[in-house]
Amino acid sequence: MWRVINYQENSAAMNMAIDEALSDSVAKGDDPVIRFYGWKPSAVSIGYFQSLEKEVDLDQCKKHGVEFVRRRTGGGAVYHDEEITYSIIAREALFPGDILESYREICRCIVDSLALLGIDSEFKPINDIITNGKKISGNAQTRRNGVLLQHGTVIYGVDVDKMFSLLKVPDEKIKDKLIATVKERVTSVKQQKGVSRDELLQALIQGFTRGKNFRFVSLSGQEEERAVRLAEERYRRNEWNFWR
């Protein structure tokens, strides 16, 4: 039976640590998990193979009280602010072996959720969901120890100018043009429909649990302890965040 962990807000390090702690417990045979969460304070996460110093303006992050963390998943830098993030953590065997097919299958839950709000969207390989040609959700997956972890964001609101004050661009001279391009290519639930963040959350819960046996739970004591330890020993450490 699926475990569903309802929306909670955490620090960047703790969010990534909880995903890893849950992955560990699923690897040991515990039930699969669907988790919804937010980032408090807001944060930038970078992909596993990215360089923190190349991607993120650390001085600006400090100035604005924005945290940063390296994810265990590949993909790009994400500014987590007005959004709902999800994680799905399960034995690999529950999903197609083909990675893109598993993205498609999990992203279908988001497409279904958005449809409940009257937003038409579609999966766009490799790892995006688009509506009216614009990105509304980004997703990233890793598979370790027989466990699939996919997490992703559903953009509720987006402040592209703020985002670009935190992320570095390869060439400052084209920054304005880049911001204009991103504004054209990214949208949000708020821009598409006048629904509340809570309505989005309820739609996501419905979309992700459809056809599944599930129960709402909290982290177990062991998972909580493991997550606190991982946050301290990995996700807050320079050795991890500045690895590349």
Binding site: S51, R72, T73
Partner: peptide
Amino acid sequence: VLITGDFFLHPEDAI
């Protein structure tokens, strides 16, 4: 040699 970027590699350790 250091490779960085927003690509995906499964398993990641292969980098």
